[in-house]
Design a protein around this nucleic acid. Sequence first.
DNA 1: TGCTACCGTTTCGTTCAGCCGAATGGAAGT
DNA 2: ACTTCCATTCGGCTGAACGAAACGGTAGCA
Lengths: 256, 256
Amino acid sequence: MTRAVDRASQILLALASGTPRLGVSEISELVDVPKPTVFTMLRTLERRGLVVQEAEGGKYALGPAVLQLGNAFLDGSELRARSASWSDMLARQAGEAVWVAVLSGPNIVVVHHTLRPDDLVQILEVGAAVPWHACALGRALVASTPDETQDTLLAAPLRRLTGKTVVDPNALRQELAEVRARGYAVENEEATLGDAGIAAPVFDWSGRVVGALGIVGPVDRLLAEGRQGRLTDAVRSTARALSRDLGAGRATPGAE
Amino acid sequence: MTRAVDRASQILLALASGTPRLGVSEISELVDVPKPTVFTMLRTLERRGLVVQEAEGGKYALGPAVLQLGNAFLDGSELRARSASWSDMLARQAGEAVWVAVLSGPNIVVVHHTLRPDDLVQILEVGAAVPWHACALGRALVASTPDETQDTLLAAPLRRLTGKTVVDPNALRQELAEVRARGYAVENEEATLGDAGIAAPVFDWSGRVVGALGIVGPVDRLLAEGRQGRLTDAVRSTARALSRDLGAGRATPGAE
DNA sequence: TGCTACCGTTTCGTTCAGCCGAATGGAAGT
DNA sequence: ACTTCCATTCGGCTGAACGAAACGGTAGCA
Protein backbone atom coordinates (compact mmCIF):
# COMPACT_ATOMS: atom_id res chain seq x y z
CA MET A 1 0.00 0.00 0.00
CA THR A 2 1.35 3.38 -1.03
CA ARG A 3 0.40 5.75 1.74
CA ALA A 4 0.57 8.91 -0.37
CA VAL A 5 -1.60 7.36 -3.09
CA ASP A 6 -4.14 6.18 -0.55
CA ARG A 7 -4.35 9.64 0.92
CA ALA A 8 -4.82 11.20 -2.50
CA SER A 9 -7.60 8.68 -3.19
CA GLN A 10 -9.32 9.75 0.01
CA ILE A 11 -9.03 13.39 -1.05
CA LEU A 12 -10.74 12.61 -4.37
CA LEU A 13 -13.49 10.65 -2.63
CA ALA A 14 -13.96 13.46 -0.09
CA LEU A 15 -14.53 15.87 -2.99
CA ALA A 16 -17.17 13.46 -4.32
CA SER A 17 -18.91 12.99 -1.00
CA GLY A 18 -21.53 15.71 -1.16
CA THR A 19 -20.08 19.22 -1.02
CA PRO A 20 -18.74 19.89 -4.52
CA ARG A 21 -16.22 22.55 -3.48
CA LEU A 22 -13.90 22.25 -0.49
CA GLY A 23 -11.02 24.30 0.87
CA VAL A 24 -7.63 22.91 1.88
CA SER A 25 -8.49 23.18 5.57
CA GLU A 26 -11.84 21.41 5.15
CA ILE A 27 -10.24 18.55 3.23
CA SER A 28 -7.45 18.38 5.81
CA GLU A 29 -10.03 17.82 8.53
CA LEU A 30 -12.15 15.37 6.52
CA VAL A 31 -9.26 13.07 5.63
CA ASP A 32 -7.10 13.77 8.72
CA VAL A 33 -4.01 14.87 6.78
CA PRO A 34 -2.00 18.10 7.49
CA LYS A 35 -2.78 21.06 5.25
CA PRO A 36 0.61 21.31 3.48
CA THR A 37 0.29 17.62 2.51
CA VAL A 38 -3.26 18.14 1.23
CA PHE A 39 -2.11 21.23 -0.62
CA THR A 40 0.74 19.44 -2.42
CA MET A 41 -1.49 16.53 -3.39
CA LEU A 42 -4.21 18.83 -4.72
CA ARG A 43 -1.62 20.56 -6.88
CA THR A 44 -0.48 17.21 -8.18
CA LEU A 45 -4.04 16.07 -8.97
CA GLU A 46 -4.71 19.44 -10.60
CA ARG A 47 -1.79 18.82 -12.94
CA ARG A 48 -3.61 15.84 -14.45
CA GLY A 49 -7.03 17.51 -14.50
CA LEU A 50 -8.46 15.32 -11.73
CA VAL A 51 -9.02 18.38 -9.56
CA VAL A 52 -9.49 22.07 -10.39
CA GLN A 53 -9.13 25.17 -8.25
CA GLU A 54 -12.00 27.60 -8.60
CA ALA A 55 -9.97 30.77 -8.45
CA GLU A 56 -6.54 31.70 -7.20
CA GLY A 57 -6.50 31.04 -3.46
CA GLY A 58 -9.96 29.50 -3.58
CA LYS A 59 -11.70 26.22 -3.11
CA TYR A 60 -11.04 22.96 -4.93
CA ALA A 61 -13.40 20.71 -6.89
CA LEU A 62 -13.20 17.56 -8.94
CA GLY A 63 -11.90 18.24 -12.44
CA PRO A 64 -13.03 17.09 -15.89
CA ALA A 65 -10.55 14.23 -16.06
CA VAL A 66 -12.63 12.31 -13.50
CA LEU A 67 -15.57 12.48 -15.90
CA GLN A 68 -13.35 10.82 -18.48
CA LEU A 69 -12.45 8.11 -15.96
CA GLY A 70 -16.15 7.58 -15.14
CA ASN A 71 -17.05 7.35 -18.80
CA ALA A 72 -14.19 4.95 -19.50
CA PHE A 73 -15.43 2.75 -16.65
CA LEU A 74 -18.90 2.65 -18.24
CA ASP A 75 -17.47 1.98 -21.70
CA GLY A 76 -15.47 -0.93 -20.32
CA SER A 77 -18.30 -2.41 -18.29
CA GLU A 78 -19.43 -5.70 -19.80
CA LEU A 79 -22.33 -5.79 -17.34
CA ARG A 80 -23.56 -2.48 -18.69
CA ALA A 81 -23.03 -3.43 -22.33
CA ARG A 82 -24.93 -6.69 -22.01
CA SER A 83 -27.69 -5.32 -19.81
CA ALA A 84 -29.02 -2.72 -22.27
CA SER A 85 -31.28 -4.95 -24.33
CA TRP A 86 -32.52 -7.01 -21.35
CA SER A 87 -33.18 -3.85 -19.40
CA ASP A 88 -35.10 -2.27 -22.30
CA MET A 89 -37.22 -5.39 -22.65
CA LEU A 90 -38.05 -5.43 -18.93
CA ALA A 91 -38.94 -1.72 -18.96
CA ARG A 92 -41.44 -2.33 -21.77
CA GLN A 93 -42.81 -5.42 -20.06
CA ALA A 94 -43.11 -3.86 -16.60
CA GLY A 95 -43.87 -0.31 -17.62
CA GLU A 96 -41.31 0.93 -15.09
CA ALA A 97 -37.78 2.29 -14.97
CA VAL A 98 -35.02 -0.34 -14.82
CA TRP A 99 -31.64 0.17 -13.18
CA VAL A 100 -28.54 -1.98 -13.27
CA ALA A 101 -26.01 -1.32 -10.50
CA VAL A 102 -22.68 -2.44 -9.07
CA LEU A 103 -21.26 -2.18 -5.54
CA SER A 104 -18.92 0.68 -4.78
CA GLY A 105 -17.80 0.80 -1.17
CA PRO A 106 -20.93 1.23 0.97
CA ASN A 107 -23.04 2.28 -2.01
CA ILE A 108 -24.46 0.83 -5.16
CA VAL A 109 -23.84 2.94 -8.23
CA VAL A 110 -26.10 2.81 -11.30
CA VAL A 111 -24.33 1.68 -14.47
CA HIS A 112 -27.39 1.44 -16.69
CA HIS A 113 -30.81 3.05 -16.54
CA THR A 114 -33.68 2.35 -18.91
CA LEU A 115 -36.31 5.07 -18.60
CA ARG A 116 -39.91 4.18 -17.86
CA PRO A 117 -41.64 3.81 -21.27
CA ASP A 118 -43.86 6.89 -21.12
CA ASP A 119 -43.44 10.49 -22.05
CA LEU A 120 -43.13 11.90 -18.55
CA VAL A 121 -39.96 13.84 -17.72
CA GLN A 122 -37.37 11.57 -16.11
CA ILE A 123 -33.79 12.10 -14.96
CA LEU A 124 -31.14 9.67 -16.15
CA GLU A 125 -29.58 8.20 -13.02
CA VAL A 126 -26.43 6.59 -14.42
CA GLY A 127 -23.67 7.39 -11.96
CA ALA A 128 -26.06 7.91 -9.06
CA ALA A 129 -25.01 6.30 -5.77
CA VAL A 130 -27.40 4.92 -3.13
CA PRO A 131 -26.40 3.27 0.17
CA TRP A 132 -26.58 -0.49 -0.36
CA HIS A 133 -28.74 -1.20 2.69
CA ALA A 134 -31.45 1.29 1.70
CA CYS A 135 -32.42 -0.15 -1.67
CA ALA A 136 -33.47 -3.43 -3.28
CA LEU A 137 -30.55 -3.33 -5.73
CA GLY A 138 -28.07 -3.13 -2.86
CA ARG A 139 -29.69 -5.85 -0.82
CA ALA A 140 -30.00 -8.20 -3.79
CA LEU A 141 -26.34 -7.68 -4.62
CA VAL A 142 -24.88 -7.86 -1.11
CA ALA A 143 -26.97 -10.92 -0.20
CA SER A 144 -24.92 -12.86 -2.78
CA THR A 145 -21.50 -11.66 -1.66
CA PRO A 146 -19.19 -13.67 0.62
CA ASP A 147 -19.84 -13.50 4.36
CA GLU A 148 -16.75 -11.39 4.98
CA THR A 149 -17.96 -8.74 2.54
CA GLN A 150 -21.30 -8.65 4.35
CA ASP A 151 -19.56 -8.44 7.72
CA THR A 152 -17.52 -5.47 6.51
CA LEU A 153 -20.55 -3.65 5.13
CA LEU A 154 -22.65 -4.30 8.23
CA ALA A 155 -19.86 -3.08 10.53
CA ALA A 156 -19.78 0.35 8.86
CA PRO A 157 -22.16 3.12 9.94
CA LEU A 158 -25.49 2.75 8.14
CA ARG A 159 -27.30 5.94 7.16
CA ARG A 160 -31.04 6.40 7.52
CA LEU A 161 -32.51 8.05 4.40
CA THR A 162 -36.22 7.95 5.29
CA GLY A 163 -38.17 7.10 8.43
CA LYS A 164 -38.50 3.58 7.04
CA THR A 165 -34.81 2.87 6.41
CA VAL A 166 -33.65 -0.22 8.31
CA VAL A 167 -30.25 0.44 9.86
CA ASP A 168 -30.03 -2.27 12.56
CA PRO A 169 -27.19 -4.64 11.47
CA ASN A 170 -28.88 -7.71 12.95
CA ALA A 171 -32.16 -7.02 11.22
CA LEU A 172 -30.29 -6.41 7.96
CA ARG A 173 -28.29 -9.61 8.33
CA GLN A 174 -31.50 -11.57 8.69
CA GLU A 175 -33.02 -9.72 5.75
CA LEU A 176 -29.95 -10.62 3.63
CA ALA A 177 -30.32 -14.28 4.50
CA GLU A 178 -33.98 -14.16 3.38
CA VAL A 179 -33.09 -12.31 0.20
CA ARG A 180 -30.45 -14.89 -0.61
CA ALA A 181 -32.87 -17.74 0.04
CA ARG A 182 -35.62 -16.40 -2.20
CA GLY A 183 -33.39 -14.85 -4.85
CA TYR A 184 -34.72 -11.29 -4.91
CA ALA A 185 -35.08 -8.17 -2.72
CA VAL A 186 -38.00 -5.80 -2.19
CA GLU A 187 -37.67 -2.36 -0.68
CA ASN A 188 -40.55 -0.15 0.40
CA GLU A 189 -39.84 3.58 0.79
CA GLU A 190 -36.45 3.07 2.44
CA ALA A 191 -34.45 5.09 -0.08
CA THR A 192 -37.11 7.60 -1.21
CA LEU A 193 -40.54 8.30 0.22
CA GLY A 194 -43.15 7.21 -2.27
CA ASP A 195 -40.82 4.87 -4.17
CA ALA A 196 -40.22 1.13 -3.95
CA GLY A 197 -37.82 -1.28 -5.61
CA ILE A 198 -37.65 -4.93 -6.66
CA ALA A 199 -34.24 -6.35 -7.64
CA ALA A 200 -32.35 -9.59 -8.26
CA PRO A 201 -28.61 -10.35 -8.33
CA VAL A 202 -26.61 -10.80 -11.54
CA PHE A 203 -23.76 -13.33 -11.79
CA ASP A 204 -20.86 -13.80 -14.19
CA TRP A 205 -19.11 -16.85 -15.72
CA SER A 206 -17.21 -17.52 -12.49
CA GLY A 207 -20.37 -17.67 -10.42
CA ARG A 208 -19.64 -14.46 -8.59
CA VAL A 209 -22.19 -11.71 -8.18
CA VAL A 210 -21.23 -8.73 -10.34
CA GLY A 211 -24.28 -6.53 -9.99
CA ALA A 212 -28.02 -6.35 -9.59
CA LEU A 213 -30.90 -5.50 -11.88
CA GLY A 214 -34.17 -4.08 -10.68
CA ILE A 215 -37.15 -1.84 -11.19
CA VAL A 216 -37.70 1.35 -9.25
CA GLY A 217 -40.93 3.33 -9.12
CA PRO A 218 -43.95 4.52 -7.12
CA VAL A 219 -44.79 2.18 -4.29
CA ASP A 220 -48.52 2.12 -5.06
CA ARG A 221 -47.81 0.78 -8.55
CA LEU A 222 -44.95 -1.61 -7.83
CA LEU A 223 -46.30 -3.21 -4.68
CA ALA A 224 -49.98 -3.30 -5.72
CA GLU A 225 -51.72 -6.55 -4.91
CA GLY A 226 -51.56 -8.96 -7.83
CA ARG A 227 -48.93 -6.91 -9.57
CA GLN A 228 -45.94 -7.33 -7.25
CA GLY A 229 -45.72 -11.05 -7.95
CA ARG A 230 -45.71 -10.59 -11.69
CA LEU A 231 -43.13 -7.82 -11.50
CA THR A 232 -40.93 -9.96 -9.25
CA ASP A 233 -41.07 -12.85 -11.72
CA ALA A 234 -40.19 -10.51 -14.57
CA VAL A 235 -37.25 -9.01 -12.67
CA ARG A 236 -35.90 -12.42 -11.69
CA SER A 237 -36.12 -13.91 -15.13
CA THR A 238 -34.48 -10.85 -16.68
CA ALA A 239 -31.65 -10.98 -14.13
CA ARG A 240 -31.26 -14.67 -14.89
CA ALA A 241 -31.11 -14.02 -18.64
CA LEU A 242 -28.54 -11.28 -18.11
CA SER A 243 -26.48 -13.63 -15.93
CA ARG A 244 -26.58 -16.25 -18.67
CA ASP A 245 -25.54 -13.59 -21.15
CA LEU A 246 -22.52 -12.94 -18.91
CA GLY A 247 -21.58 -16.61 -18.93
CA ALA A 248 -23.17 -17.77 -15.68
CA GLY A 249 -24.19 -21.38 -15.48
CA ARG A 250 -27.70 -22.66 -14.75
CA ALA A 251 -26.78 -23.71 -11.22
CA THR A 252 -25.80 -20.16 -10.16
CA PRO A 253 -27.33 -19.14 -6.84
CA GLY A 254 -30.58 -17.33 -7.49
CA ALA A 255 -30.73 -18.74 -11.00
CA GLU A 256 -32.81 -21.83 -10.32
CA MET B 1 4.21 17.89 -6.59
CA THR B 2 3.89 14.45 -5.02
CA ARG B 3 5.66 12.04 -7.34
CA ALA B 4 3.80 8.93 -6.17
CA VAL B 5 0.42 10.63 -6.55
CA ASP B 6 1.32 11.88 -10.01
CA ARG B 7 2.31 8.38 -11.04
CA ALA B 8 -0.93 6.93 -9.70
CA SER B 9 -2.86 9.57 -11.64
CA GLN B 10 -1.06 8.51 -14.80
CA ILE B 11 -2.00 4.89 -14.10
CA LEU B 12 -5.68 5.84 -13.79
CA LEU B 13 -5.56 7.87 -16.99
CA ALA B 14 -3.78 5.03 -18.78
CA LEU B 15 -6.65 2.72 -17.82
CA ALA B 16 -9.05 5.29 -19.31
CA SER B 17 -7.12 5.72 -22.53
CA GLY B 18 -8.74 3.13 -24.71
CA THR B 19 -8.02 -0.44 -23.65
CA PRO B 20 -10.33 -1.08 -20.69
CA ARG B 21 -8.26 -3.88 -19.15
CA LEU B 22 -4.49 -3.76 -18.73
CA GLY B 23 -1.92 -5.98 -17.06
CA VAL B 24 0.80 -4.77 -14.68
CA SER B 25 3.47 -5.12 -17.38
CA GLU B 26 1.41 -3.19 -19.95
CA ILE B 27 0.77 -0.35 -17.51
CA SER B 28 4.43 -0.35 -16.50
CA GLU B 29 5.40 0.25 -20.12
CA LEU B 30 2.70 2.83 -20.79
CA VAL B 31 3.58 5.04 -17.83
CA ASP B 32 7.31 4.16 -17.64
CA VAL B 33 7.23 2.98 -14.02
CA PRO B 34 8.76 -0.35 -12.76
CA LYS B 35 6.31 -3.22 -12.30
CA PRO B 36 6.56 -3.54 -8.48
CA THR B 37 5.73 0.15 -8.17
CA VAL B 38 2.75 -0.18 -10.52
CA PHE B 39 1.64 -3.26 -8.63
CA THR B 40 1.70 -1.56 -5.24
CA MET B 41 -0.16 1.47 -6.55
CA LEU B 42 -2.83 -0.66 -8.21
CA ARG B 43 -3.39 -2.46 -4.92
CA THR B 44 -3.75 0.88 -3.19
CA LEU B 45 -6.22 2.20 -5.76
CA GLU B 46 -8.12 -1.09 -5.55
CA ARG B 47 -8.55 -0.54 -1.84
CA ARG B 48 -10.65 2.54 -2.51
CA GLY B 49 -12.58 1.04 -5.44
CA LEU B 50 -10.87 3.21 -8.06
CA VAL B 51 -9.45 0.13 -9.73
CA VAL B 52 -10.56 -3.51 -9.81
CA GLN B 53 -8.70 -6.67 -10.69
CA GLU B 54 -10.61 -8.96 -13.01
CA ALA B 55 -9.53 -12.24 -11.45
CA GLU B 56 -6.71 -13.33 -9.21
CA GLY B 57 -3.46 -12.77 -11.09
CA GLY B 58 -5.33 -11.09 -13.95
CA LYS B 59 -5.73 -7.75 -15.61
CA TYR B 60 -6.79 -4.47 -14.00
CA ALA B 61 -9.60 -2.08 -14.94
CA LEU B 62 -11.10 1.12 -13.60
CA GLY B 63 -13.42 0.49 -10.65
CA PRO B 64 -16.90 1.76 -9.80
CA ALA B 65 -15.61 4.51 -7.53
CA VAL B 66 -14.42 6.46 -10.59
CA LEU B 67 -18.02 6.49 -11.83
CA GLN B 68 -18.99 8.10 -8.55
CA LEU B 69 -16.23 10.70 -9.05
CA GLY B 70 -17.45 11.40 -12.58
CA ASN B 71 -21.03 11.74 -11.43
CA ALA B 72 -20.03 14.02 -8.58
CA PHE B 73 -18.16 16.21 -11.06
CA LEU B 74 -21.30 16.50 -13.19
CA ASP B 75 -23.48 17.19 -10.13
CA GLY B 76 -21.14 19.99 -9.07
CA SER B 77 -20.79 21.55 -12.51
CA GLU B 78 -22.52 24.92 -12.59
CA LEU B 79 -21.93 25.07 -16.35
CA ARG B 80 -23.89 21.86 -16.76
CA ALA B 81 -26.65 22.89 -14.39
CA ARG B 82 -27.23 26.22 -16.07
CA SER B 83 -26.85 24.93 -19.61
CA ALA B 84 -29.75 22.46 -19.52
CA SER B 85 -32.59 24.86 -20.33
CA TRP B 86 -30.61 26.90 -22.87
CA SER B 87 -29.45 23.71 -24.55
CA ASP B 88 -33.00 22.31 -24.71
CA MET B 89 -34.25 25.55 -26.25
CA LEU B 90 -31.50 25.52 -28.88
CA ALA B 91 -32.18 21.88 -29.73
CA ARG B 92 -35.86 22.66 -30.38
CA GLN B 93 -34.96 25.76 -32.35
CA ALA B 94 -32.24 24.14 -34.45
CA GLY B 95 -33.69 20.66 -34.64
CA GLU B 96 -30.26 19.23 -33.86
CA ALA B 97 -28.37 17.69 -30.95
CA VAL B 98 -26.68 20.19 -28.63
CA TRP B 99 -23.54 19.47 -26.62
CA VAL B 100 -21.89 21.48 -23.87
CA ALA B 101 -18.25 20.62 -23.18
CA VAL B 102 -15.23 21.55 -21.08
CA LEU B 103 -11.51 21.15 -21.73
CA SER B 104 -9.76 18.13 -20.21
CA GLY B 105 -6.12 17.86 -21.15
CA PRO B 106 -5.94 17.53 -24.96
CA ASN B 107 -9.63 16.66 -25.23
CA ILE B 108 -12.97 18.26 -24.74
CA VAL B 109 -15.39 16.22 -22.65
CA VAL B 110 -19.18 16.53 -22.95
CA VAL B 111 -20.90 17.64 -19.75
CA HIS B 112 -24.37 18.11 -21.17
CA HIS B 113 -26.11 16.64 -24.22
CA THR B 114 -29.59 17.53 -25.41
CA LEU B 115 -30.82 14.95 -27.88
CA ARG B 116 -32.04 15.99 -31.32
CA PRO B 117 -35.80 16.51 -30.99
CA ASP B 118 -37.00 13.54 -33.05
CA ASP B 119 -37.71 9.95 -32.30
CA LEU B 120 -34.65 8.44 -33.92
CA VAL B 121 -32.37 6.35 -31.71
CA GLN B 122 -29.55 8.45 -30.27
CA ILE B 123 -26.73 7.71 -27.85
CA LEU B 124 -26.24 10.03 -24.89
CA GLU B 125 -22.70 11.35 -25.16
CA VAL B 126 -22.18 12.84 -21.69
CA GLY B 127 -18.67 11.85 -20.67
CA ALA B 128 -17.48 11.35 -24.24
CA ALA B 129 -14.06 12.84 -25.03
CA VAL B 130 -12.99 14.26 -28.41
CA PRO B 131 -9.57 15.79 -29.24
CA TRP B 132 -9.95 19.56 -29.02
CA HIS B 133 -8.46 20.28 -32.43
CA ALA B 134 -10.82 17.96 -34.29
CA CYS B 135 -14.14 19.53 -33.31
CA ALA B 136 -15.89 22.89 -33.27
CA LEU B 137 -16.46 22.72 -29.51
CA GLY B 138 -12.73 22.33 -28.89
CA ARG B 139 -11.69 25.07 -31.26
CA ALA B 140 -14.29 27.51 -29.92
CA LEU B 141 -13.11 26.85 -26.37
CA VAL B 142 -9.35 26.85 -26.99
CA ALA B 143 -9.51 29.98 -29.15
CA SER B 144 -10.55 31.89 -26.02
CA THR B 145 -7.88 30.48 -23.71
CA PRO B 146 -4.62 32.34 -22.89
CA ASP B 147 -1.78 32.11 -25.42
CA GLU B 148 0.24 29.83 -23.17
CA THR B 149 -2.57 27.30 -22.99
CA GLN B 150 -2.79 27.33 -26.78
CA ASP B 151 0.98 26.94 -27.08
CA THR B 152 0.89 23.91 -24.79
CA LEU B 153 -1.96 22.27 -26.69
CA LEU B 154 -0.38 22.95 -30.08
CA ALA B 155 2.96 21.54 -28.94
CA ALA B 156 1.41 18.16 -28.08
CA PRO B 157 0.97 15.47 -30.75
CA LEU B 158 -2.31 16.05 -32.64
CA ARG B 159 -4.23 12.96 -33.76
CA ARG B 160 -5.90 12.68 -37.14
CA LEU B 161 -9.40 11.19 -36.79
CA THR B 162 -10.58 11.45 -40.42
CA GLY B 163 -8.88 12.31 -43.70
CA LYS B 164 -10.06 15.89 -43.17
CA THR B 165 -8.63 16.43 -39.67
CA VAL B 166 -6.28 19.41 -39.60
CA VAL B 167 -3.20 18.55 -37.53
CA ASP B 168 -0.67 21.18 -38.68
CA PRO B 169 0.01 23.43 -35.66
CA ASN B 170 0.52 26.54 -37.77
CA ALA B 171 -2.72 26.04 -39.66
CA LEU B 172 -4.53 25.44 -36.39
CA ARG B 173 -3.02 28.54 -34.79
CA GLN B 174 -4.31 30.63 -37.66
CA GLU B 175 -7.70 28.93 -37.45
CA LEU B 176 -7.84 29.71 -33.71
CA ALA B 177 -7.12 33.38 -34.38
CA GLU B 178 -9.97 33.45 -36.89
CA VAL B 179 -12.33 31.65 -34.50
CA ARG B 180 -11.49 34.13 -31.79
CA ALA B 181 -12.08 37.06 -34.12
CA ARG B 182 -15.49 35.91 -35.31
CA GLY B 183 -16.65 34.34 -32.06
CA TYR B 184 -17.56 30.84 -33.25
CA ALA B 185 -16.04 27.69 -34.80
CA VAL B 186 -17.23 25.45 -37.62
CA GLU B 187 -15.90 21.96 -38.24
CA ASN B 188 -16.61 19.88 -41.31
CA GLU B 189 -16.10 16.10 -41.01
CA GLU B 190 -12.89 16.41 -38.99
CA ALA B 191 -14.09 14.35 -36.02
CA THR B 192 -16.55 12.00 -37.77
CA LEU B 193 -17.17 11.43 -41.44
CA GLY B 194 -20.63 12.73 -42.33
CA ASP B 195 -20.88 15.00 -39.28
CA ALA B 196 -20.21 18.68 -38.80
CA GLY B 197 -20.26 21.02 -35.79
CA ILE B 198 -20.88 24.67 -35.00
CA ALA B 199 -19.88 25.96 -31.55
CA ALA B 200 -19.26 29.11 -29.53
CA PRO B 201 -17.33 29.70 -26.28
CA VAL B 202 -18.99 30.14 -22.90
CA PHE B 203 -17.61 32.54 -20.27
CA ASP B 204 -18.10 32.96 -16.54
CA TRP B 205 -18.34 35.93 -14.18
CA SER B 206 -14.57 36.43 -14.24
CA GLY B 207 -14.46 36.68 -18.01
CA ARG B 208 -12.67 33.39 -18.41
CA VAL B 209 -13.77 30.76 -20.87
CA VAL B 210 -15.26 27.79 -19.00
CA GLY B 211 -16.65 25.72 -21.83
CA ALA B 212 -18.28 25.71 -25.24
CA LEU B 213 -21.77 25.06 -26.50
CA GLY B 214 -22.54 23.78 -29.95
CA ILE B 215 -24.63 21.70 -32.28
CA VAL B 216 -23.42 18.49 -33.87
CA GLY B 217 -25.10 16.68 -36.74
CA PRO B 218 -25.03 15.57 -40.38
CA VAL B 219 -22.93 17.87 -42.53
CA ASP B 220 -25.54 18.12 -45.29
CA ARG B 221 -28.07 19.52 -42.82
CA LEU B 222 -25.84 21.76 -40.69
CA LEU B 223 -23.81 23.32 -43.48
CA ALA B 224 -26.60 23.61 -46.03
CA GLU B 225 -26.66 26.92 -47.86
CA GLY B 226 -28.93 29.40 -46.13
CA ARG B 227 -29.15 27.28 -43.03
CA GLN B 228 -25.61 27.48 -41.69
CA GLY B 229 -25.90 31.22 -41.04
CA ARG B 230 -29.11 30.85 -39.07
CA LEU B 231 -27.74 27.96 -37.06
CA THR B 232 -24.57 29.92 -36.31
CA ASP B 233 -26.61 32.88 -35.06
CA ALA B 234 -28.70 30.59 -32.88
CA VAL B 235 -25.59 28.90 -31.40
CA ARG B 236 -23.88 32.20 -30.68
CA SER B 237 -26.87 33.79 -29.02
CA THR B 238 -27.47 30.69 -26.88
CA ALA B 239 -23.80 30.63 -25.81
CA ARG B 240 -24.10 34.32 -24.98
CA ALA B 241 -27.24 33.75 -22.91
CA LEU B 242 -25.58 30.87 -21.07
CA SER B 243 -22.53 33.07 -20.40
CA ARG B 244 -24.80 35.77 -18.98
CA ASP B 245 -26.49 33.13 -16.86
CA LEU B 246 -23.02 32.27 -15.49
CA GLY B 247 -22.38 35.91 -14.58
CA ALA B 248 -20.38 37.02 -17.60
CA GLY B 249 -20.55 40.70 -18.46
CA ARG B 250 -21.72 42.11 -21.80
CA ALA B 251 -18.17 43.03 -22.80
CA THR B 252 -16.94 39.42 -22.62
CA PRO B 253 -14.95 38.38 -25.70
CA GLY B 254 -17.31 36.81 -28.20
CA ALA B 255 -20.28 38.29 -26.39
CA GLU B 256 -20.65 41.50 -28.41
C1' DT C 1 -10.98 51.91 10.05
C1' DG C 2 -8.60 48.63 12.69
C1' DC C 3 -8.34 44.24 14.63
C1' DT C 4 -8.89 39.23 14.82
C1' DA C 5 -9.30 34.79 12.98
C1' DC C 6 -8.46 31.73 9.66
C1' DC C 7 -7.56 30.89 5.01
C1' DG C 8 -4.19 29.00 1.33
C1' DT C 9 0.55 28.75 0.59
C1' DT C 10 5.62 28.52 1.53
C1' DT C 11 9.79 26.97 3.89
C1' DC C 12 12.89 23.62 5.37
C1' DG C 13 14.72 19.91 8.36
C1' DT C 14 13.76 15.07 9.39
C1' DT C 15 12.78 10.31 8.69
C1' DC C 16 10.80 6.42 6.95
C1' DA C 17 7.95 5.29 2.96
C1' DG C 18 8.51 4.90 -1.75
C1' DC C 19 11.29 2.83 -4.69
C1' DC C 20 12.92 -0.85 -7.65
C1' DG C 21 16.39 -4.68 -8.89
C1' DA C 22 16.41 -9.30 -8.28
C1' DA C 23 14.05 -13.28 -7.52
C1' DT C 24 10.04 -16.42 -7.26
C1' DG C 25 6.07 -19.26 -8.45
C1' DG C 26 2.75 -19.99 -11.85
C1' DA C 27 0.44 -20.06 -16.25
C1' DA C 28 0.24 -19.78 -21.18
C1' DG C 29 2.07 -21.09 -25.44
C1' DT C 30 4.72 -24.06 -28.38
C1' DA D 1 8.51 -30.90 -21.45
C1' DC D 2 10.42 -26.64 -22.05
C1' DT D 3 10.46 -21.64 -22.66
C1' DT D 4 8.74 -17.21 -22.01
C1' DC D 5 6.61 -13.83 -19.60
C1' DC D 6 3.25 -12.87 -16.36
C1' DA D 7 2.01 -11.04 -11.48
C1' DT D 8 3.83 -10.90 -7.09
C1' DT D 9 7.28 -10.90 -3.21
C1' DC D 10 11.41 -9.43 -0.79
C1' DG D 11 14.59 -6.35 1.30
C1' DG D 12 18.05 -2.59 1.37
C1' DC D 13 18.70 2.27 0.27
C1' DT D 14 17.89 7.15 -0.22
C1' DG D 15 15.43 11.05 -1.42
C1' DA D 16 10.55 12.15 -1.53
C1' DA D 17 6.91 12.63 1.55
C1' DC D 18 5.93 14.68 5.51
C1' DG D 19 4.30 18.29 8.56
C1' DA D 20 5.42 22.11 12.19
C1' DA D 21 5.98 26.71 11.95
C1' DA D 22 5.51 30.77 9.65
C1' DC D 23 3.82 34.02 6.16
C1' DG D 24 0.83 37.10 3.40
C1' DG D 25 -3.78 37.93 2.43
C1' DT D 26 -8.74 38.21 3.05
C1' DA D 27 -13.17 38.00 5.28
C1' DG D 28 -15.80 39.22 9.09
C1' DC D 29 -16.88 42.10 12.83
C1' DA D 30 -17.01 45.92 16.09
